[in-house]
């Protein structure tokens, strides 16, 4: 996931290599067509269906207690998952980018693993590991610790699914930055924590924020894995995507799209923050390549 889109191109003013206007027009039209079919139509549909029965029905659907509890659970989950994975991402990126050791390639591959694993498998493994059929799961159950089919299970499955995003964002960034600055500080007598908080953290803050935003977007929207471990108890273990599915299968078509608009809205906000941030990423690390 190399997501470093830059807006630097504006500075380069690529006038000389511009394609002929006809080619440009055709390619832009093709792109617009693709976006129309694959992006704008689903987006439009969500709003059209959500508002089909009017604003009153729409508002009622998103203010209904079960919808609110789903929003709450989703936000709680994201609030736990994003910091945990951010701490991990920074730690892993520190270990991988600042030191050389054997097996680095394997370690980096393993970090990516959750990205390629089917969400269904992501749910299945936690059912197999923590479900009461197994020794560990039944031990937990006997001691009154509920993980699966309650909030912790949803959190863990989400942790798995969003695992690589922060680390993936930071490793190339920190590798490109090298370690001269930190080493100089150490030689000058700075303590480890000081070096990290005064030098490393400011250098990576935009990349870190960016990774956290990706992580948040994914944790809000995860469906497959969470669906397997949730238990679907209304008002207790339903996240927004699960609530959407439940409304949908209750023939509450309009409400399901209305609640979907919350997700679309969250997605759009995330995207907006992200594009704002991209400017900053590149203003602060202009010499990355």
């Amino acid at each position: 996931m190399q997501t470093n889109t830059t807006l630097q191109e504006q500075r380069k003013a690529p006038l000389k290599r511009n394609d002929p206007p006809a080619v440009q027009a055709i390619l832009i039209l093709l792109t617009l067509l693709f976006f129309a079919i694959f992006i704008f139509m689903p987006l439009g549909l969500v709003f059209a269906e959500g508002l089909r029965k009017g604003v009153a029905v729409y508002l009622e659907a998103i203010r209904e207690p079960f919808a609110l509890s789903a929003v709450k659970l989703t936000l709680i989950t994201a609030a736990i998952v994003v910091p945990l994975n951010a701490v991990f991402g920074v730690t892993a990126a520190w270990a991988i980018s600042k030191f050389s050791f054997k097996g680095k390639t394997l370690l980096v591959s393993l970090l990516d693993l959750p990205f390629a694993v089917s969400p269904v498998i992501a749910g299945l493994i936690f059912v197999l590991l923590l479900g009461t059929r197994t020794g560990f799961g039944s031990w937990l159950g006997d001691h009154g610790i509920k993980i699966i089919f309650s909030t912790p299970g949803i959190v863990i499955a989400t942790l798995f699914v969003t695992f690589p995003f922060v680390a993936r964002e930071l490793i190339p960034l920190m590798e490109a930055q090298g370690r001269e600055e930190e080493e100089a500080a150490i030689t000058l007598g700075a303590r480890g924590w000081q070096v990290f908080s005064r030098i490393t953290l400011p250098n990576i803050r935009w990349g870190l924020m960016y990774g956290m935003i990706l992580c948040m977007a994914r944790s809000i929207g995860e469906f497959g894995a969470v669906s397997v471990v949730s238990g679907h108890i209304r008002g207790m273990t339903n996240t927004i995507p699960l609530h959407v599915e439940i409304l949908y299968s209750e023939y509450n078509y309009t409400a399901s799209f209305a609640v979907s608009t919350i997700l679309v809205f969250l997605a759009l906000v995330t995207i907006a923050i992200k594009s704002l941030m991209e400017k900053n990423v590149h203003n602060h690390q202009p010499t990355q390549h």
Partner: peptide, 14 residues
């Protein structure tokens, strides 16, 4: 450019 990320952020079920 911003909306390129929509598929990433939109829940798959939706």
């Amino acid at each position: 450019d911003a909306l390129v990320d929509l598929p990433f952020a939109l829940p798959t079920a939706v």
